[in-house]
Design a protein around this nucleic acid. Sequence first.
DNA 1: CATTGATACAACCTACTGGTTGTATGACGG
DNA 2: CCGTCATACAACCAGTAGGTTGTATCAATG
Lengths: 111, 111
Amino acid sequence: MLSPAEADQVFSALADATRRDILRRAMAGSEGVAELAERYPMSFAAVQKHVAVLERAGLVAKERAGRRKLVVTQVERLKQAQRLLDEYEALWRGRIERMSDILEGPQGGAA
Amino acid sequence: MLSPAEADQVFSALADATRRDILRRAMAGSEGVAELAERYPMSFAAVQKHVAVLERAGLVAKERAGRRKLVVTQVERLKQAQRLLDEYEALWRGRIERMSDILEGPQGGAA
DNA sequence: CATTGATACAACCTACTGGTTGTATGACGG
DNA sequence: CCGTCATACAACCAGTAGGTTGTATCAATG
């Protein structure tokens, strides 16, 4: 669903509070880069770079709106990341079950 | 649930394929650092550093077992990350509802 | 078509990351 | 207690990330 390289990109994009905030604001999809930039204590270009990171990770896209470009989150990528974490958690549950098997002894044990 | 700084640590820990793999292996919780290290094409010390990153992020802990230390994943942190992504997705759903409100027109509109 | 507003991009700097090797600590076996 | 296995840590290096400023493109407007 997410290749290892894509997962790298998605998680490292999420590993920055400013980018997570941009992602949240981009849910509404009504702000351009300039509007976003006003909200953070850094230069316009810095915010632009953050948006570019999110875009490369597939977490947002830009839509032309006149002379602006609106930043909108791509919720599908977010869901893919969720699913990856779900898989890990499923593995964990599997581990518990396997441990239970062991604790219940070899009655139904290996052939 | 996760402070911004903690979220930074968790996601940046997850943003590396080797570390995600270690995390999965650590679900079984029966391997020490040395056993893990054998599986990756890098030095023991490099794997040790990856484990340290996961540990600082709270995603794994080490349990002493004789002269070894077993690396075990802390599933609670994983769940906290999941919940964070759930929150984002909930925001998205909220956006959809708000958009529907708008599309349905101002019958119940602003006072 | 010149100006202005919004975005993009390049060059640069500093700090951190991911890897290396080498050395030190800690726990068990003889 | 001496050796050895397992882990930890420090020093170092190359590459990348996150910030800066400055310049260039692109679209609307007079």
